[in-house]
Design a protein around this nucleic acid. Structure first.
Lengths: 338, 338
DNA sequence: CAGGCAGCGGGAAACGTTTCCGGGGTGGCT
DNA sequence: AGCCACCCCGGAAACGTTTCCCGCTGCCTG
């Protein structure tokens, strides 16, 4: 470990016998003299020069970095997004910073605030909730931001949305069409954005299938719990015991739906013979479960890709008005509801 | 969008009526005069000053950033690592850069080379393979590196390893103990590091259980395929048809093992009654499958945590000799082999 | 009472680039 | 052949910090 100080542009200049301005120009392609370029390159190789991106950032006022902030990278939906975002950014020479904010909203706001420290040129944000303080912070950012998720219409920020309401409705309609009449719904917490939207979609689906009056508020077949496997299992067991006539269950995500499948198995009910099951998010879990789980894809990968594209456009200097893209959901039917 | 230029330390100094040195000292806690601190803080709030981390980095020669490089964040093992690494680093004030290198070895070397651009203070690397060029690059890095995975003993770099050979052996011994006599193994490609190690572990397990002579090379119950669900399913179907007397199957990862479960179900064999199944990696898939899949955990989360700790120690200035930590595997027994 | 020392604050340099500006040389046009 | 214009290259400033160094003030001590 020699710990020699890294060579700077000055040493290159000395070795090449030219000025530092010429070195900089040669390296950035702002010179036409082939001889100069050759000499500089030779010197660069000789001293083993590598530019300092920090110094470049200070001077050029951009860092080549973009942050992606979400609750938890362990969540399959966010994971899919990262898998698309990272290569897209890398291809354009941007590095990706990952911020897992956890369930803490303060952390989220902290990320937004830290944008002012200008270590990134842009941000893709998946907010858990959107509070007034979020909106305030979003209005004031110095760098472009793309928000994935629901956002009030008057916030001037690029926005990519899934439509989980339509997604849930799609699932319900599919189940009804397959002959189900008593369709239960196990949702996540109602005070989350997706929990709320999926609930609304479920109700609309019932109404459009003629299975419930639009103003029916009894919700006897609806349960709210966490977006987790065990939660789904427990809740499903309870629900199915209380209502043995249920002939279909929609889980608000694949984990819940997996829990439902387990509960049904424990209760000795056949899937899809006795009860049909559909999940949401269409994660890898769905394809490998038994029976393979029908699931509503909310296009996480697409949302990630589109967010990256929008951000790259902004970084490229585009100052068109903020865009609002909604990615349509799609239902993948597998055996669990066939 | 006012796009006003961000205030610098100079404006704070002007507003507070002090010098920029005093502002810097006050903000970094290097001043004892409470009055000064108060005035500076007031001025900071008044002008809305936020320090530029880029300028700070240039001056202080560290960036507060650490990179994590692996093949694909979609891989459950890497994902678990990130989930531990990120909070650990964040708690110490470091930001995390994510590099998905893909299957391309050049990309990996590129990441190593880019360390010289000093936009990070350290790196955690999960190399796919370790070539001479890797070793060379690792010897020359200017910043601390921690490698997760197998590394030649003479490379002077902190190293965290799993022991998938022992892991596979553990699984085989467990199956033998449960009464299995004809234990099959569906491995990934033999020319990958884990494929090779798991194969060795399988053979040792058989030998130690007295189910095969140590020099038996027939491998009639071994198959090599990809580390994927469909591959595991197809291969298992073929294997189980050719050898109906197989009473246990070890899958080289959970995806393969899930494929095995599906194949067994299609063939009408009961799990674990007729055939016991064990997977490896202990991903979320294992707990939610049916029946729940026994799986060998290779301690991805622990490896991530330990790697982060080692790196943080280096960043803290520790220059003890490189450390080599091996995380022991552990078997989680679930219904599929009970 | 005077001198010295400690501590605080200001000026300025430095980190490693990019880029503006200006001077000198060359080539082309008149 | 002379003049003008353009092209190249070098010098220097600037990006926004931190920190070294030095001078000043005030207090304590001899």
């Amino acid at each position: 470990m020699t710990q020699r100080r890294r060579p700077t542009i000055h040493e290159v200049a000395k070795v090449a016998g030219v000025s530092i301005s010429s070195v900089s120009r040669a390296l950035n392609g702002n010179t036409s003299n082939a001889d100069m370029v050759a000499r500089v390159n030779a010197a660069v190789r000789q001293v083993g020069y590598v530019p300092s991106v920090v110094a470049q950032s200070l001077k050029t006022r951009h860092t080549g970095q973009v942050a992606f902030a979400m609750e938890d990278i362990g969540n399959a939906a966010y994971l899919e997004m990262v898998r698309r975002i990272q290569p897209a950014l890398r291809d354009q020479g941007y590095r990706l910073l990952l911020h897992s904010t956890g369930a803490d909203v303060e952390n989220e706001l902290g990320v937004l605030a830290s944008l002012s420290q200008n270590y990134v040129d842009g941000l893709i944000l998946c907010p858990l909730r959107v509070t007034d303080r979020h909106v305030e912070a979003l209005r004031q950012t110095a760098v472009p931001v793309v928000v994935i998720g629901l956002l009030p219409d008057d916030v001037p920020v690029d926005n990519v949305r899934a439509d989980s309401r339509v997604g849930a409705r799609l699932a319900v309609e599919h189940l009804a069409e397959a002959g189900a009449r008593r369709i239960a719904f196990i949702d996540g917490p109602l005070d989350t954005v997706p929990g709320r939207a999926r609930y609304d979609g479920y109700r609309r689906g019932l109404a459009s299938a003629g299975l419930a009056a639009a103003d029916d508020q009894t919700d006897e077949l609806v349960r709210f719990t966490d977006f987790q496997f065990e939660a789904g299992r427990q809740t499903a067991r309870e629900l199915l015991t209380a209502h043995p006539d249920v002939d279909a269950v929609l889980g608000a995500n694949d984990l819940i739906a997996m829990g439902v499948l387990h509960a049904l198995r424990e209760l000795g009910r056949d899937v899809p013979g006795d009860v049909r099951v559909v999940g949401m998010d269409d994660t890898p879990l769905a394809a490998t479960s038994f029976p393979p789980l029908s699931s509503v894809s909310l296009g996480s990968a697409d949302r990630g890709r589109i967010a990256a594209e929008l951000l790259l456009r902004r970084l490229d200097g585009d100052d068109a008005p903020p865009e609002r893209v909604t990615v349509p959901p799609s239902l993948t039917v597998r055996e669990s509801s066939r």
